[in-house]
Design a protein around this nucleic acid. Structure first.
Lengths: 334, 334
DNA sequence: ATGAAAGCGCTAACAT
DNA sequence: ATGTTAGCGCTTTCAT
């Protein structure tokens, strides 16, 4: 591997000049410039980005922390981040914490010591260790969906309320009066938020005497199945079920089908996430959309700006969810 | 950020000694060692891994190149790679080529200049540019599923033959005599291989007078749907359909259902990949399994060994596929 | 218009 | 048992 000295020697200039023609950072006579470029070509020169990073303090490298690569939430988000990153000449370190704080801390620590220019953290399990570690490391951070608002760093939040409210309104306007909600794991902040959003939306219809209930789920299919089993024990079934995520909804649909109950004729079901699966099951699932690609892209946009201008005012945005009506919802049986 | 000099000064030693206590690379008196460690703690020292990398030529960083993060094939593979990587103190650069050779080359070029210790390439579109670029860059490579055998680098291949053969045998033993295959895009090497494996397996039953045909698909759901439409035009339908991947199979199932044809009663269907989806559709899809997590893990194992010992003999392994029988297959109608 | 030289933070061969 | 010193490959200030 050739370096500046080799080039300099071959082109009969100093290594300073080599640096300057490579970075176009000061005037160099066209002819000397040519000599340098020729030399570079002849030696098929490749810059050593470690050395450059050491000298400049910029590595053109960022970190992306997620909690579970198998969660269908992530691929599009990652795509959004990576695409914009590459477009701006950044490379992306991927850290999959696997819900393991130790593992997360280990990776993130290494990234900081590798002098990444910034980091996007999407781990939905908001743990303060992580955050603390990060914040005083002075590395630019963007938080995604970090449950709690008003953190002091750039962040992008997802507002489930509009979507969940729409879902409830949709059910009500279709004549449903007994509406259940199958939740995610209670340990998850975003799951708790969804429950509250559901209850909030329901209670706006106080006058109609809606009946509702929140059943425990786990954001996986089997949680939906189990929830149905619980529901089936009641004397009078709900005619509508809204779920904390799509997998749960699909589990619910499956459970209902197994029990001989038809979706949407007997029971309407709504999910949340709009994962690819929702268009594959039948009936296609009515769901609340989260624009995952856009989340990733926005996060990267924030990070780029922050990297460019360290003391920008705090950037923050709230991405709203919205209902997408498909085949799993219909008028309530009368 | 403190550095060796700061520590050295505080501990009243030379920076060499600091280096040696940090790396445990030569004997240091317990007492001096303690002074150094205390100094490190007091300054809350963090090593600069760029500098270390520049000095040692090792960055403890690898690259992972995939072609489409949204392909359900990848998450588990990535998990396999990343998990083992972190366990061995490596960080992973993720490059999503998005089927765009330019983009891939750009990212990979950057990684090489960032002095990654090795790279795993899984891009299924075997393009020689990529490979060429890599091979003469002297960076340790592991290829996954690179279609063509006998490349000169470490590689892990997937042998579709056992699985596809089992699939055909299964269909035959269930009494099916007219078996169709819905292929992937013809441009894809692995798709062509699967077609050949299918034909090979079928022709072993020459004596039985099997009827078969290969219909074009595209490895997506709509390809499966279209294939069904084509098939429906024939006077006599096949009783069994084997598909080049699961998405196609799910499209086929959907198409059949739309046409009022029952799976598996009227037509049996088999997919390939064993993505999570296969357990969610109903009936659950009989499919040919590829152990994606294991592929990732094995690739990383190969890479670690290669990094440790540059001129090991070429490592190679063929991971076999196998049939997983679920609900989408049953005895042929008589 | 170009060069010399110091420095980024670490390692390692060579002294002592 | 510890220190001196010369790199690793690049950037950048200061000279000329």
């Amino acid at each position: 591997m050739a370096n500046y000295n080799d080039i300099a020697k071959l082109a009969k200039v100093s290594s300073t000049t080599v640096s300057h023609v490579i970075n176009e950072t000061r005037f160099v006579l066209p002819e000397t410039k040519k000599r340098v470029k020729d030399a570079m070509k002849k030696l098929s020169y490749q810059p050593n980005l470690l050395a450059r990073g050491l000298a400049t303090g910029k590595t053109h490298t960022i970190g992306l922390v997620i909690s579970d690569i198998k969660n269908p939430f992530y691929p599009e988000l990652i795509q959004g981040v990576e695409e914009l990153a590459v477009k701006n000449d950044y490379n992306v370190f991927l850290c999959n914490t696997d819900y393991d704080i130790e593992k997360g801390l280990k990776s993130i620590g290494a990234l900081i010591r590798k002098k990444i220019d910034g980091i996007i953290i999407t781990s939905s399990q908001a743990d303060n260790l992580l955050l603390g570690e990060m914040i005083n490391s002075k590395v630019p951070i963007v938080l995604v969906n970090w449950g709690r608002r008003n953190v002091k760093v750039d962040n992008i939040c997802i507002d489930y309320k509009p979507g969940i409210t729409e879902a409830v309104e949709c059910m009500v306007s279709l004549g449903h009066r007994k509406i259940y909600f199958v939740s995610g794991p209670k340990t998850l902040k975003t799951a708790k938020i969804r429950i509250n959003n559901f209850i909030g939306a329901i209670e706006k219809f106080n006058g109609l005497g809606l009946k509702y209930k929140v059943i425990d789920g786990n954001h996986k299919m089997d949680g939906g199945l189990k929830a149905v089993r619980k529901i089936l024990k009641e004397k009078e079934l709900p005619t509508a079920v809204i779920c904390s995520n799509d997998l749960t909804a699909i589990g619910v649909m499956k459970g209902l089908r197994l029990a001989g109950i038809k979706v949407p004729e007997d029971v309407s079901v709504i999910g949340l996430d709009n994962i690819a699966l929702t268009k594959i099951v039948s009936p296609m699932l009515t769901t609340i959309e989260i624009e995952r690609y856009r989340i990733g892209k926005t996060a990267m946009e924030f990070l780029l700006k922050r990297i460019k201008e360290k003391d920008l005012p705090r950037q923050t945005v709230i991405l709203k969810t919205k209902l997408i009506v498909r085949g799993s919802t219909s008028k309530a049986k009368t």
